[in-house]
Amino acid sequence: MWPILRMVIQRLGLGLLTLFVVSVIIFSSVEFLPGDLAQEILGQAATPETVAAFRKELGLDRPPVERYFTWLGNVAQGDFGKSLANNREISELIGQRLLNTLFLAGFAATIAVPLAITLGVLAALYRNTLFDRMINVFTLTSISFPEFFVAYILILFFAVNWGLFPSISNIGPETSFWDKVYRTMLPAITLTLVVVAHMMRMTRAAIINLLASPYIEMARLKGIKPGRVIVKHALPNALAPIINVVAINLAYLVVGVVVVEVVFVYPGLGQLLVDSVSKRDITVVQASSLVFAATYILLNLTADVLSILTNPRLLHPR
């Protein structure tokens, strides 16, 4: 058991280190501005005195290293500072939106993961048949579609032509759970279509890789049905790569929501980020980038740790 614990701790340490470096990058990106933040906000017309005063108010007169640690300390306590555009507390802006984004990503994942694994198993079972080739073409196609294309096609059919679901996913904190599910159905389906292909292809590949193993041959020779061989004998051993690809796709989901949120006017973190980029509201962009990057890194870290923990060879060392 010890070597595995050491590996997990190593990965966690590496993850924390990455998180630290990423936070430094996000913080220091502003330092590359031609002038500095104060100059940038006030514009060219401001007198040197106002710029100096504003610089002091933002704390820009202190050395960067000191400012970084103050910033990091505040962020750790949930205080992201104030928005440059409207002077509101960033934590207030982000809080509810982050929950909304996670709800959407989670909703998409609950549809996508079982669907992808089922399709992957079926494709492996009926490999090289017409069904497999159709799934292959379908997945190649769905990987190639821009997210907004999928989104608008869904809107055209489900919202405009058939009137089944709303084209705008307008939810608030007081919206009930089922109402939320109803209103976020189209964005969730869009995201599902985007991530299913990759997960499904990996599941199929992981299972087909195993089918040449002696114990599968043995199971076949015993006369077990092909479906049972795959589900009972191959699938458990293919779990490690599958769990890995699922976690990576979840990480992609959390980030991939940006475009989808904009299409459906969904009040999530992605939309806030895009709005703030066009307003050049740098503090909000920094805060939301940090939240996105941290979620992404943590999910990738989970994938790493899980693939170590589910590897039978590591769990039972000789």
Partner: peptide, 21 residues
Amino acid sequence: DVLMAIPQLIFALLLLTIVGT
């Protein structure tokens, strides 16, 4: 390694805010 740890779209948006679109 470090550059790849940050999701590409998010990183692109961050950099575009700073240097202008």
